[in-house]
Design a binder for these strands. Sequence first.
DNA 1: GTAAAATTGTGATATGTATCACATTTATTA
DNA 2: TAATAAATGTGATACATATCACAATTTTAC
Lengths: 226, 226
Amino acid sequence: MRQLNCSMCILKSEAARKFSDSELSRMNQNCVEVDFKKNEIIFKQNALSSNIIYLQSGMVKLVIEGKQREQILRIKKAPCYLGLPTTMGDKINHYSAVAIVPTRACFIDINIFKELLKSNFEFSYEIMVELCKNELDQFHRCVNLVQKHIFGRLANSLIQFSEELFEDDEFDLPINRNEYADLVCTSRETVSRMLAELSEEKVIEINGKRIKILNKEMLNKIRENG
Amino acid sequence: MRQLNCSMCILKSEAARKFSDSELSRMNQNCVEVDFKKNEIIFKQNALSSNIIYLQSGMVKLVIEGKQREQILRIKKAPCYLGLPTTMGDKINHYSAVAIVPTRACFIDINIFKELLKSNFEFSYEIMVELCKNELDQFHRCVNLVQKHIFGRLANSLIQFSEELFEDDEFDLPINRNEYADLVCTSRETVSRMLAELSEEKVIEINGKRIKILNKEMLNKIRENG
DNA sequence: GTAAAATTGTGATATGTATCACATTTATTA
DNA sequence: TAATAAATGTGATACATATCACAATTTTAC
C-alpha cells in the first residue's frame, strides 16, 4: 500500500473536484489503491459490500449470475465510480465487477464516502445525477436487448465499443466470444456466425479479437432496424 | 387547485418525514395536486421534464416507446416518487407515466426539490438509496426479461401483481392483454394462450381481467425454472 | 337497446435463434 | 518445440414464439 495523493487523482472525477483540503486529506487517509490483472475480480456478487470503488484506469465488466447463464450488465471504463448502487442499495453485492484489461482502482470505505456526501452538497448532487443517468441508460439498454434481434444488438455493441469505450474505429475486443454472447444475450455460436456475416458484408473487418469498422452508416442502420 | 397540507401527506413518504416546519411550508406553497383518470398521461416521453411527482394514491405504468413496440418499464403504486431519474438525469423525459387506475399526484418543481435535498441530508441520502435500489431492481428485471421464457416472465409478473401491488391472491388486472404483452415483452396472442394454459393447469383462475392465484408453489416453480 | 368499436381467443404457419456435434485454430504450459 | 487446453467456426436440427387470419366476446357510444 503506497502513500496516496487523492488531490492528483481526484482531478479526473468531475464530482470530487469540489472537495476542500480537509476533505481531501480525510480521503487520503481512508483510501487504498489496488492493481488488477485481466480477469481478476474487483468485487463479487453475494459478498458483503462495504466500499465504493473509484476506477483510476482500465476497464471493467459488471456481471450478474442469471439462472441459466451469466449476463454482462455493462462495461465501464475509467474514470468512474463502481458499486454505487450495489453498495448503497443493499448490504450485499447484487453483481460482480471483473477487470477485462489491467485496471487500477481505489477503495473508499462506504462510511467515509457517506461523510463526504454529507459535507459537500455539490458532490452529493452530482452523484445523484450520475445515478439517475445510469438508470435512464439502463432502461434504454434493456429495451435494446429485449426488442432488437441479435444483429441489431451486435451492431449496437460494436458502436459502443468504438465510440464510447475505445473512441476509435479500430480496437481489440477486451472479451472473448463467450463473454460477448453474455453481453448481447445470445449464444457463443450465434456471435461467431453474425460477426462472420458482418465481415462478409464488408461492414467490419475481423482478425481474431481485432475489429475494424469499415462501414459505419451500415452499422448504424442495422442498429436502428435490427 | 386546492389549498394543500403537505404535512398530512408527507407522512406516507419515509424520506420526507425529516422535514422541518419551514421546509414543509416551503413545500406547501410550491406544490400542486392533480387527479388522473385511468389512461391519462401524467408526463410524456420527450416532453420537457421539470417536476418531481409524488404519487399520493393510485397506480402508474412507466412506458418507453421502442422502435418496434411500447415497453412497460415497470408498474409503480402509491406512495412513491415518479420521475426522479428522468427529471434529474436529463432535461427531457426518457419515458412516459400513465395512470392505470384513478390516481392522485403532487407536482413539485425540480428547483424546490433540489433546495429540499440541499437543506436536509437525511432526505437526500434516502433519495439516493432509493435511486440505488431502483437501479438494482432494474438490473434484475432486465435479466428476468432476457433470460426467461415467456412462461417464467408471466409467472413472475403474476406474482408481482399479487404480492407487491395488490397484496392479495385475487385481483383485477389494471391493464389489458396488449399492455400485458408490453409488460412481459411478448405478443398479445401469446399472453392469451399462456394465461389460458395456466388456467387449464389450475395454477390460476381467469375471468376477464379478474385473476385468482390457485397454486402459488407451482407459480413460483414456473418463475424460477421458466 | 342497438350499432360500432375495441378487446380477446385460437388455429395455422413462418422464422429467428438455441442447441448439439465436431472440426479447426489459437493460446498456454511443460 | 511438443503437448494440452482453451477458444472459435460452422453445419444440421429442434423449438419457442411471432405473425397472420379470423371468430367470438365485451365495451363504448349514440
